[in-house]
Write a protein that binds this DNA or RNA. Sequence first.
DNA 1: GTCAAGCCATGCGGATTCTCATTGTCGAAG
DNA 2: CTTCGACAATGAGAATCCGCATGGCTTGAC
Lengths: 227, 227
Amino acid sequence: MRILIVEDNKTLAGALKQGLEEERFAVDLAYDGEEGDYKARVNEYDVIVLDLMLPKVDGWTLLQRWRERGLTTHVLVLTARGSTEEKVQGLNLGADDYLAKPFQFEELLARIRALIRRKHQVKNPIIRIYDLEIDTAARRVKRGGKVIHLTPREYALLEFLAFHRGRVVTRPMIWEHLYDEEDESTSNVVDVYIRYLRQKIDKGFEPPLILTRWGEGYMLRGEEEAS
Amino acid sequence: MRILIVEDNKTLAGALKQGLEEERFAVDLAYDGEEGDYKARVNEYDVIVLDLMLPKVDGWTLLQRWRERGLTTHVLVLTARGSTEEKVQGLNLGADDYLAKPFQFEELLARIRALIRRKHQVKNPIIRIYDLEIDTAARRVKRGGKVIHLTPREYALLEFLAFHRGRVVTRPMIWEHLYDEEDESTSNVVDVYIRYLRQKIDKGFEPPLILTRWGEGYMLRGEEEAS
DNA sequence: GTCAAGCCATGCGGATTCTCATTGTCGAAG
DNA sequence: CTTCGACAATGAGAATCCGCATGGCTTGAC
Protein backbone atom coordinates (compact mmCIF):
# COMPACT_ATOMS: atom_id res chain seq x y z
CA MET A 1 0.00 0.00 0.00
CA ARG A 2 1.44 3.32 -1.02
CA ILE A 3 0.99 6.47 0.98
CA LEU A 4 1.82 10.12 0.40
CA ILE A 5 2.47 12.34 3.39
CA VAL A 6 2.25 16.08 2.80
CA GLU A 7 3.68 17.72 5.90
CA ASP A 8 6.14 20.58 6.28
CA ASN A 9 7.42 19.56 9.68
CA LYS A 10 10.30 17.40 8.56
CA THR A 11 10.80 15.79 11.93
CA LEU A 12 7.20 14.65 12.12
CA ALA A 13 7.13 13.64 8.47
CA GLY A 14 10.28 11.61 8.86
CA ALA A 15 9.00 9.89 11.95
CA LEU A 16 5.73 8.99 10.26
CA LYS A 17 7.52 7.68 7.21
CA GLN A 18 9.71 5.50 9.34
CA GLY A 19 6.83 4.23 11.42
CA LEU A 20 4.73 3.41 8.41
CA GLU A 21 7.59 1.75 6.59
CA GLU A 22 8.03 -0.55 9.51
CA GLU A 23 4.47 -1.61 8.79
CA ARG A 24 5.52 -2.19 5.18
CA PHE A 25 3.73 0.71 3.65
CA ALA A 26 5.53 2.43 0.80
CA VAL A 27 5.80 6.05 1.82
CA ASP A 28 6.54 9.18 -0.20
CA LEU A 29 7.05 12.58 1.40
CA ALA A 30 6.25 16.09 0.25
CA TYR A 31 7.30 19.10 2.31
CA ASP A 32 5.10 21.75 0.74
CA GLY A 33 1.90 22.15 -1.18
CA GLU A 34 3.47 22.34 -4.60
CA GLU A 35 5.46 19.19 -4.16
CA GLY A 36 2.45 17.43 -2.74
CA ASP A 37 0.30 18.47 -5.65
CA TYR A 38 2.90 17.25 -8.10
CA LYS A 39 3.36 13.86 -6.48
CA ALA A 40 -0.34 13.28 -6.06
CA ARG A 41 -0.77 13.91 -9.74
CA VAL A 42 2.10 11.74 -10.89
CA ASN A 43 1.69 8.69 -8.69
CA GLU A 44 -1.24 6.68 -7.54
CA TYR A 45 -1.59 6.42 -3.80
CA ASP A 46 -3.88 4.40 -1.64
CA VAL A 47 -4.07 7.13 0.95
CA ILE A 48 -2.81 10.71 1.22
CA VAL A 49 -2.10 12.20 4.64
CA LEU A 50 -2.43 15.95 4.33
CA ASP A 51 -1.42 18.65 6.74
CA LEU A 52 -3.51 21.79 6.32
CA MET A 53 -0.86 24.35 7.27
CA LEU A 54 1.66 24.20 4.45
CA PRO A 55 4.12 26.49 2.69
CA LYS A 56 3.42 27.68 -0.85
CA VAL A 57 -0.02 26.11 -1.24
CA ASP A 58 -2.13 25.28 1.79
CA GLY A 59 -3.96 22.05 2.40
CA TRP A 60 -7.48 23.31 1.77
CA THR A 61 -6.53 24.62 -1.65
CA LEU A 62 -4.76 21.39 -2.47
CA LEU A 63 -7.71 19.27 -1.44
CA GLN A 64 -10.12 21.42 -3.39
CA ARG A 65 -7.96 21.24 -6.49
CA TRP A 66 -7.71 17.48 -6.27
CA ARG A 67 -11.43 17.00 -5.92
CA GLU A 68 -12.14 19.38 -8.77
CA ARG A 69 -9.72 17.42 -10.87
CA GLY A 70 -11.58 14.25 -10.00
CA LEU A 71 -8.94 12.64 -7.84
CA THR A 72 -10.70 10.06 -5.72
CA THR A 73 -7.83 8.96 -3.52
CA HIS A 74 -8.80 8.93 0.14
CA VAL A 75 -7.37 11.88 2.02
CA LEU A 76 -6.77 11.99 5.76
CA VAL A 77 -6.45 15.56 6.96
CA LEU A 78 -4.16 16.59 9.79
CA THR A 79 -4.50 19.90 11.50
CA ALA A 80 -2.89 21.55 14.47
CA ARG A 81 -6.00 23.08 15.91
CA GLY A 82 -8.97 20.97 16.82
CA SER A 83 -11.77 23.39 16.11
CA THR A 84 -15.00 21.89 14.89
CA GLU A 85 -15.15 24.49 12.16
CA GLU A 86 -11.96 23.28 10.61
CA LYS A 87 -13.14 19.70 10.74
CA VAL A 88 -16.42 20.53 9.11
CA GLN A 89 -14.81 22.55 6.41
CA GLY A 90 -12.27 19.85 5.73
CA LEU A 91 -14.87 17.14 5.44
CA ASN A 92 -17.00 19.26 3.19
CA LEU A 93 -14.08 19.96 0.91
CA GLY A 94 -13.76 16.26 0.32
CA ALA A 95 -11.57 14.92 3.09
CA ASP A 96 -12.32 11.35 4.00
CA ASP A 97 -11.16 11.51 7.55
CA TYR A 98 -9.75 13.95 9.99
CA LEU A 99 -7.19 13.74 12.77
CA ALA A 100 -6.24 16.51 15.22
CA LYS A 101 -2.67 17.05 16.33
CA PRO A 102 -1.29 15.89 18.57
CA PHE A 103 -2.27 12.30 17.88
CA GLN A 104 -1.04 8.83 18.72
CA PHE A 105 0.75 7.04 15.95
CA GLU A 106 -1.44 3.99 16.61
CA GLU A 107 -4.52 5.95 15.81
CA LEU A 108 -3.14 7.32 12.59
CA LEU A 109 -2.25 3.80 11.61
CA ALA A 110 -5.72 2.48 12.38
CA ARG A 111 -7.34 5.28 10.41
CA ILE A 112 -5.08 4.75 7.44
CA ARG A 113 -5.94 1.07 7.45
CA ALA A 114 -9.63 1.88 7.71
CA LEU A 115 -9.35 4.15 4.69
CA ILE A 116 -7.56 1.48 2.72
CA ARG A 117 -10.26 -1.06 3.51
CA ARG A 118 -12.83 1.48 2.51
CA LYS A 119 -11.05 2.17 -0.75
CA HIS A 120 -11.16 -1.48 -1.60
CA GLN A 121 -14.70 -1.74 -0.33
CA VAL A 122 -13.79 -4.37 2.16
CA LYS A 123 -16.27 -3.85 4.92
CA ASN A 124 -15.47 -6.91 6.92
CA PRO A 125 -11.90 -6.87 8.17
CA ILE A 126 -11.74 -10.61 7.55
CA ILE A 127 -11.42 -11.75 3.98
CA ARG A 128 -12.24 -15.37 3.20
CA ILE A 129 -11.27 -17.16 0.04
CA TYR A 130 -12.02 -20.86 0.10
CA ASP A 131 -10.32 -22.03 3.29
CA LEU A 132 -7.96 -19.07 3.33
CA GLU A 133 -8.66 -16.43 5.93
CA ILE A 134 -7.02 -13.03 6.04
CA ASP A 135 -7.63 -10.90 9.09
CA THR A 136 -6.71 -7.45 7.84
CA ALA A 137 -7.06 -5.96 11.31
CA ALA A 138 -4.79 -8.40 13.09
CA ARG A 139 -2.73 -9.03 9.94
CA ARG A 140 -2.98 -12.72 10.51
CA VAL A 141 -3.46 -15.39 7.90
CA LYS A 142 -4.88 -18.87 8.18
CA ARG A 143 -5.39 -21.62 5.70
CA GLY A 144 -7.42 -24.67 6.59
CA GLY A 145 -7.76 -23.30 10.10
CA LYS A 146 -4.03 -23.26 10.67
CA VAL A 147 -2.15 -20.02 11.29
CA ILE A 148 0.49 -19.23 8.68
CA HIS A 149 3.34 -16.94 9.49
CA LEU A 150 4.03 -14.41 6.77
CA THR A 151 6.77 -11.83 6.69
CA PRO A 152 5.57 -8.22 6.35
CA ARG A 153 6.37 -8.11 2.66
CA GLU A 154 4.63 -11.38 2.03
CA TYR A 155 1.60 -10.20 3.90
CA ALA A 156 1.52 -6.93 2.00
CA LEU A 157 1.58 -8.80 -1.28
CA LEU A 158 -1.14 -11.20 -0.23
CA GLU A 159 -3.34 -8.39 0.99
CA PHE A 160 -2.92 -6.54 -2.26
CA LEU A 161 -3.89 -9.62 -4.22
CA ALA A 162 -6.83 -10.18 -1.91
CA PHE A 163 -8.14 -6.67 -2.43
CA HIS A 164 -8.15 -7.41 -6.14
CA ARG A 165 -9.33 -10.98 -5.95
CA GLY A 166 -10.79 -12.21 -9.17
CA ARG A 167 -8.94 -9.55 -11.09
CA VAL A 168 -5.62 -9.77 -12.80
CA VAL A 169 -2.95 -7.61 -11.22
CA THR A 170 0.12 -6.83 -13.26
CA ARG A 171 3.65 -6.80 -11.98
CA PRO A 172 3.92 -3.01 -12.36
CA MET A 173 0.75 -2.62 -10.30
CA ILE A 174 2.20 -4.75 -7.55
CA TRP A 175 5.49 -2.96 -7.78
CA GLU A 176 3.87 0.44 -7.53
CA HIS A 177 1.99 -0.47 -4.40
CA LEU A 178 4.71 -2.28 -2.54
CA TYR A 179 7.61 0.05 -3.16
CA ASP A 180 8.01 3.81 -3.03
CA GLU A 181 9.43 6.15 -5.62
CA GLU A 182 13.02 5.71 -4.59
CA ASP A 183 13.07 2.10 -5.58
CA GLU A 184 13.57 1.53 -9.20
CA SER A 185 14.49 -1.85 -10.32
CA THR A 186 14.32 -4.33 -13.08
CA SER A 187 14.57 -7.20 -10.69
CA ASN A 188 12.20 -10.05 -10.20
CA VAL A 189 11.44 -9.51 -6.52
CA VAL A 190 7.77 -9.75 -7.20
CA ASP A 191 8.15 -13.18 -8.74
CA VAL A 192 10.26 -14.25 -5.83
CA TYR A 193 7.65 -13.17 -3.32
CA ILE A 194 4.94 -14.86 -5.27
CA ARG A 195 6.98 -17.98 -4.91
CA TYR A 196 7.39 -17.50 -1.17
CA LEU A 197 3.67 -16.95 -0.82
CA ARG A 198 2.84 -20.02 -2.82
CA GLN A 199 5.08 -22.14 -0.72
CA LYS A 200 3.38 -20.98 2.42
CA ILE A 201 -0.19 -20.71 1.23
CA ASP A 202 -0.75 -23.05 -1.66
CA LYS A 203 1.69 -25.84 -1.04
CA GLY A 204 -0.17 -28.89 0.19
CA PHE A 205 -3.61 -27.39 -0.37
CA GLU A 206 -6.29 -27.62 -3.00
CA PRO A 207 -7.17 -25.70 -5.00
CA PRO A 208 -4.23 -23.38 -5.61
CA LEU A 209 -5.31 -19.82 -4.89
CA ILE A 210 -2.52 -17.89 -6.55
CA LEU A 211 -2.92 -18.15 -10.28
CA THR A 212 -0.47 -17.10 -12.95
CA ARG A 213 -1.76 -15.27 -15.99
CA TRP A 214 0.97 -15.78 -18.50
CA GLY A 215 2.25 -12.51 -19.90
CA GLU A 216 -0.13 -10.49 -17.76
CA GLY A 217 0.40 -10.96 -14.07
CA TYR A 218 -1.12 -12.82 -11.18
CA MET A 219 -4.55 -13.26 -9.74
CA LEU A 220 -6.07 -14.52 -6.54
CA ARG A 221 -8.74 -17.05 -7.27
CA GLY A 222 -12.21 -15.53 -7.26
CA GLU A 223 -15.46 -17.42 -6.92
CA GLU A 224 -15.20 -19.93 -9.69
CA GLU A 225 -12.11 -20.07 -11.77
CA ALA A 226 -10.80 -22.70 -14.03
CA SER A 227 -7.07 -22.72 -13.83
CA MET B 1 -31.28 9.09 2.36
CA ARG B 2 -32.23 6.82 5.21
CA ILE B 3 -30.37 6.73 8.48
CA LEU B 4 -30.54 4.44 11.48
CA ILE B 5 -29.49 5.76 14.85
CA VAL B 6 -28.73 3.15 17.52
CA GLU B 7 -28.45 5.07 20.76
CA ASP B 8 -29.88 4.35 24.20
CA ASN B 9 -29.91 7.93 25.42
CA LYS B 10 -33.40 8.89 24.30
CA THR B 11 -32.84 12.60 24.69
CA LEU B 12 -29.79 12.57 22.47
CA ALA B 13 -31.37 10.18 19.98
CA GLY B 14 -34.46 12.35 19.72
CA ALA B 15 -32.41 15.49 19.19
CA LEU B 16 -30.36 13.87 16.45
CA LYS B 17 -33.46 12.55 14.74
CA GLN B 18 -35.03 15.96 14.74
CA GLY B 19 -31.90 17.68 13.53
CA LEU B 20 -31.35 15.20 10.72
CA GLU B 21 -34.95 15.30 9.65
CA GLU B 22 -34.66 19.03 9.27
CA GLU B 23 -31.89 18.24 6.82
CA ARG B 24 -34.26 16.00 4.89
CA PHE B 25 -32.94 12.66 6.05
CA ALA B 26 -35.30 9.83 6.91
CA VAL B 27 -34.37 8.70 10.40
CA ASP B 28 -35.15 5.51 12.33
CA LEU B 29 -34.28 5.03 15.98
CA ALA B 30 -33.27 1.99 17.99
CA TYR B 31 -32.78 2.19 21.73
CA ASP B 32 -30.86 -1.01 22.34
CA GLY B 33 -28.66 -3.51 20.54
CA GLU B 34 -31.38 -6.03 19.77
CA GLU B 35 -33.63 -3.48 18.21
CA GLY B 36 -30.74 -2.03 16.27
CA ASP B 37 -29.76 -5.41 14.94
CA TYR B 38 -33.31 -6.15 13.90
CA LYS B 39 -33.81 -2.87 12.09
CA ALA B 40 -30.46 -3.04 10.35
CA ARG B 41 -31.40 -6.47 9.06
CA VAL B 42 -34.88 -5.60 7.91
CA ASN B 43 -34.32 -2.22 6.35
CA GLU B 44 -31.69 -0.84 4.05
CA TYR B 45 -29.97 2.25 5.34
CA ASP B 46 -27.50 4.60 3.74
CA VAL B 47 -25.74 5.23 7.01
CA ILE B 48 -25.97 3.76 10.49
CA VAL B 49 -24.96 5.83 13.51
CA LEU B 50 -23.96 3.41 16.24
CA ASP B 51 -23.34 4.07 19.90
CA LEU B 52 -20.99 1.58 21.47
CA MET B 53 -22.46 1.57 25.00
CA LEU B 54 -25.81 -0.11 24.57
CA PRO B 55 -28.20 -2.25 26.60
CA LYS B 56 -28.66 -5.94 25.72
CA VAL B 57 -26.09 -6.13 22.91
CA ASP B 58 -23.21 -3.72 22.77
CA GLY B 59 -22.04 -1.83 19.72
CA TRP B 60 -18.87 -3.80 19.06
CA THR B 61 -20.76 -7.06 18.94
CA LEU B 62 -23.34 -5.54 16.65
CA LEU B 63 -20.75 -4.18 14.28
CA GLN B 64 -18.90 -7.43 14.16
CA ARG B 65 -22.08 -9.38 13.46
CA TRP B 66 -23.04 -7.05 10.65
CA ARG B 67 -19.70 -7.29 8.97
CA GLU B 68 -19.62 -11.06 9.28
CA ARG B 69 -23.02 -11.14 7.74
CA GLY B 70 -21.67 -9.11 4.84
CA LEU B 71 -23.56 -5.92 5.55
CA THR B 72 -21.75 -3.15 3.72
CA THR B 73 -23.68 -0.15 4.97
CA HIS B 74 -21.46 2.68 6.18
CA VAL B 75 -21.33 2.79 9.95
CA LEU B 76 -20.38 5.82 12.02
CA VAL B 77 -19.45 4.87 15.55
CA LEU B 78 -20.17 7.06 18.55
CA THR B 79 -18.51 6.52 21.85
CA ALA B 80 -18.55 8.31 25.13
CA ARG B 81 -14.92 8.01 25.95
CA GLY B 82 -12.31 9.29 23.60
CA SER B 83 -9.60 6.79 24.26
CA THR B 84 -7.38 5.92 21.36
CA GLU B 85 -7.84 2.24 22.02
CA GLU B 86 -11.55 2.38 21.54
CA LYS B 87 -11.16 4.31 18.36
CA VAL B 88 -8.62 1.88 17.03
CA GLN B 89 -10.74 -1.12 17.88
CA GLY B 90 -13.82 0.40 16.33
CA LEU B 91 -12.09 1.19 13.09
CA ASN B 92 -10.56 -2.24 12.96
CA LEU B 93 -13.90 -3.93 13.47
CA GLY B 94 -15.12 -2.35 10.27
CA ALA B 95 -16.43 1.04 11.27
CA ASP B 96 -16.23 3.63 8.53
CA ASP B 97 -15.86 6.59 10.79
CA TYR B 98 -15.67 7.47 14.41
CA LEU B 99 -16.89 10.36 16.51
CA ALA B 100 -16.23 10.99 20.18
CA LYS B 101 -18.88 12.37 22.47
CA PRO B 102 -19.50 15.11 23.10
CA PHE B 103 -19.64 16.35 19.54
CA GLN B 104 -21.17 19.22 17.66
CA PHE B 105 -24.20 18.37 15.59
CA GLU B 106 -22.59 20.16 12.66
CA GLU B 107 -19.73 17.76 12.72
CA LEU B 108 -21.92 14.69 12.81
CA LEU B 109 -23.81 16.08 9.85
CA ALA B 110 -20.64 16.71 7.90
CA ARG B 111 -19.39 13.20 8.57
CA ILE B 112 -22.67 11.61 7.59
CA ARG B 113 -22.60 13.57 4.37
CA ALA B 114 -19.01 12.48 3.76
CA LEU B 115 -20.03 8.86 4.15
CA ILE B 116 -22.97 9.24 1.83
CA ARG B 117 -20.82 10.93 -0.77
CA ARG B 118 -18.86 7.75 -1.12
CA LYS B 119 -21.12 5.93 -3.45
CA HIS B 120 -19.07 3.90 -5.81
CA GLN B 121 -20.92 2.51 -8.72
CA VAL B 122 -19.53 -0.82 -9.72
CA LYS B 123 -19.82 -0.97 -13.43
CA ASN B 124 -20.24 -4.35 -14.98
CA PRO B 125 -16.94 -5.52 -16.40
CA ILE B 126 -18.51 -8.37 -18.36
CA ILE B 127 -19.23 -8.12 -22.06
CA ARG B 128 -21.68 -10.62 -23.54
CA ILE B 129 -22.12 -11.40 -27.22
CA TYR B 130 -24.44 -14.31 -27.91
CA ASP B 131 -23.01 -17.07 -25.74
CA LEU B 132 -19.61 -15.44 -25.62
CA GLU B 133 -18.63 -13.86 -22.32
CA ILE B 134 -15.64 -11.60 -21.77
CA ASP B 135 -14.72 -10.74 -18.20
CA THR B 136 -12.49 -7.71 -18.62
CA ALA B 137 -11.46 -7.71 -14.97
CA ALA B 138 -10.27 -11.26 -14.78
CA ARG B 139 -9.35 -11.21 -18.47
CA ARG B 140 -11.17 -14.45 -18.91
CA VAL B 141 -13.28 -15.61 -21.80
CA LYS B 142 -16.05 -18.16 -21.96
CA ARG B 143 -18.13 -19.46 -24.80
CA GLY B 144 -21.14 -21.63 -24.15
CA GLY B 145 -20.28 -21.56 -20.46
CA LYS B 146 -16.89 -23.10 -21.00
CA VAL B 147 -13.67 -21.28 -20.16
CA ILE B 148 -11.42 -20.65 -23.12
CA HIS B 149 -7.76 -19.98 -22.60
CA LEU B 150 -6.41 -17.09 -24.65
CA THR B 151 -2.86 -15.83 -24.83
CA PRO B 152 -2.32 -12.13 -24.05
CA ARG B 153 -2.28 -11.13 -27.71
CA GLU B 154 -5.31 -13.13 -28.53
CA TYR B 155 -7.15 -11.60 -25.63
CA ALA B 156 -6.11 -8.09 -26.55
CA LEU B 157 -7.37 -8.61 -30.07
CA LEU B 158 -10.68 -10.03 -28.91
CA GLU B 159 -11.21 -7.23 -26.46
CA PHE B 160 -10.51 -4.67 -29.13
CA LEU B 161 -13.01 -6.29 -31.46
CA ALA B 162 -15.52 -6.50 -28.63
CA PHE B 163 -15.22 -2.81 -27.87
CA HIS B 164 -16.10 -2.16 -31.50
CA ARG B 165 -18.66 -4.88 -31.88
CA GLY B 166 -20.96 -4.42 -34.82
CA ARG B 167 -18.49 -2.12 -36.51
CA VAL B 168 -15.73 -2.89 -38.95
CA VAL B 169 -12.20 -2.55 -37.69
CA THR B 170 -9.44 -2.26 -40.25
CA ARG B 171 -6.12 -3.99 -40.07
CA PRO B 172 -4.26 -0.72 -39.51
CA MET B 173 -6.57 0.04 -36.59
CA ILE B 174 -5.83 -3.30 -35.02
CA TRP B 175 -2.16 -2.97 -35.75
CA GLU B 176 -1.93 0.40 -34.08
CA HIS B 177 -3.79 -0.79 -31.05
CA LEU B 178 -1.78 -3.94 -30.50
CA TYR B 179 1.66 -2.63 -31.28
CA ASP B 180 3.37 0.54 -30.11
CA GLU B 181 5.94 0.93 -32.79
CA GLU B 182 5.36 2.34 -36.17
CA ASP B 183 6.63 -0.57 -38.08
CA GLU B 184 5.67 -0.31 -41.66
CA SER B 185 5.10 -3.97 -41.44
CA THR B 186 4.33 -6.13 -44.36
CA SER B 187 3.55 -9.05 -42.15
CA ASN B 188 0.23 -10.67 -41.65
CA VAL B 189 0.35 -11.17 -37.90
CA VAL B 190 -3.10 -9.74 -37.54
CA ASP B 191 -4.52 -12.30 -39.90
CA VAL B 192 -2.70 -15.00 -38.06
CA TYR B 193 -4.16 -13.96 -34.73
CA ILE B 194 -7.60 -13.71 -36.20
CA ARG B 195 -7.13 -17.30 -37.17
CA TYR B 196 -6.01 -18.31 -33.70
CA LEU B 197 -9.03 -16.57 -32.23
CA ARG B 198 -11.40 -18.23 -34.63
CA GLN B 199 -10.04 -21.63 -33.79
CA LYS B 200 -10.57 -21.06 -30.12
CA ILE B 201 -13.77 -19.09 -30.17
CA ASP B 202 -15.76 -19.92 -33.28
CA LYS B 203 -14.74 -23.48 -34.03
CA GLY B 204 -17.54 -25.79 -33.07
CA PHE B 205 -19.99 -23.00 -32.31
CA GLU B 206 -22.83 -21.29 -34.10
CA PRO B 207 -23.06 -18.64 -35.25
CA PRO B 208 -19.53 -17.52 -36.10
CA LEU B 209 -18.80 -14.29 -34.27
CA ILE B 210 -15.69 -13.13 -36.09
CA LEU B 211 -16.66 -11.94 -39.52
CA THR B 212 -14.46 -10.97 -42.44
CA ARG B 213 -15.32 -7.82 -44.34
CA TRP B 214 -13.60 -8.41 -47.61
CA GLY B 215 -11.20 -5.63 -48.52
CA GLU B 216 -11.96 -3.73 -45.29
CA GLY B 217 -11.14 -5.65 -42.17
CA TYR B 218 -12.86 -7.68 -39.50
CA MET B 219 -15.88 -7.32 -37.31
CA LEU B 220 -17.35 -8.93 -34.24
CA ARG B 221 -20.97 -9.86 -34.82
CA GLY B 222 -23.34 -7.28 -33.44
CA GLU B 223 -27.04 -7.81 -32.84
CA GLU B 224 -28.28 -8.82 -36.23
CA GLU B 225 -25.72 -9.41 -38.92
CA ALA B 226 -25.90 -11.17 -42.20
CA SER B 227 -22.75 -13.08 -42.81
C1' DG C 1 28.01 -13.32 15.69
C1' DT C 2 23.67 -15.37 14.23
C1' DC C 3 19.45 -15.46 12.11
C1' DA C 4 15.66 -14.05 9.41
C1' DA C 5 13.99 -11.15 5.91
C1' DG C 6 14.68 -8.92 1.67
C1' DC C 7 16.71 -8.63 -2.68
C1' DC C 8 19.28 -9.74 -7.06
C1' DA C 9 21.37 -12.46 -11.09
C1' DT C 10 21.23 -16.29 -13.79
C1' DG C 11 19.68 -20.20 -16.55
C1' DC C 12 16.34 -23.46 -18.20
C1' DG C 13 12.27 -24.99 -20.47
C1' DG C 14 7.97 -24.23 -22.06
C1' DA C 15 4.58 -20.86 -23.90
C1' DT C 16 3.90 -17.41 -27.08
C1' DT C 17 4.70 -14.59 -30.93
C1' DC C 18 6.04 -13.89 -35.49
C1' DT C 19 7.67 -14.93 -40.31
C1' DC C 20 7.03 -16.86 -44.56
C1' DA C 21 5.73 -19.69 -48.23
C1' DT C 22 1.70 -21.71 -49.84
C1' DT C 23 -3.03 -22.56 -50.65
C1' DG C 24 -7.71 -20.95 -50.85
C1' DT C 25 -11.33 -17.50 -51.92
C1' DC C 26 -13.70 -13.39 -53.46
C1' DG C 27 -15.66 -10.43 -56.97
C1' DA C 28 -15.47 -7.62 -60.95
C1' DA C 29 -14.40 -7.47 -65.94
C1' DG C 30 -14.90 -9.49 -70.03
C1' DC D 1 -19.71 -18.19 -66.87
C1' DT D 2 -14.87 -17.84 -66.78
C1' DT D 3 -10.79 -15.79 -65.62
C1' DC D 4 -7.54 -13.17 -63.10
C1' DG D 5 -5.57 -10.31 -59.68
C1' DA D 6 -6.01 -9.03 -55.15
C1' DC D 7 -6.98 -10.39 -50.82
C1' DA D 8 -7.50 -13.80 -47.01
C1' DA D 9 -6.51 -18.20 -44.61
C1' DT D 10 -3.41 -21.80 -43.44
C1' DG D 11 0.51 -24.61 -41.58
C1' DA D 12 4.78 -25.14 -39.75
C1' DG D 13 8.97 -23.88 -37.83
C1' DA D 14 12.11 -20.29 -35.98
C1' DA D 15 12.81 -16.68 -32.78
C1' DT D 16 11.63 -14.61 -28.72
C1' DC D 17 9.67 -13.91 -24.31
C1' DC D 18 8.42 -15.15 -19.74
C1' DG D 19 7.79 -17.53 -15.38
C1' DC D 20 9.98 -20.15 -12.13
C1' DA D 21 13.56 -22.03 -9.42
C1' DT D 22 17.80 -21.56 -7.19
C1' DG D 23 21.77 -19.86 -4.73
C1' DG D 24 23.99 -16.31 -2.86
C1' DC D 25 24.56 -11.54 -1.21
C1' DT D 26 23.07 -7.63 1.87
C1' DT D 27 20.93 -5.65 5.68
C1' DG D 28 19.14 -5.03 10.20
C1' DA D 29 17.57 -6.88 14.75
C1' DC D 30 18.97 -9.06 18.88
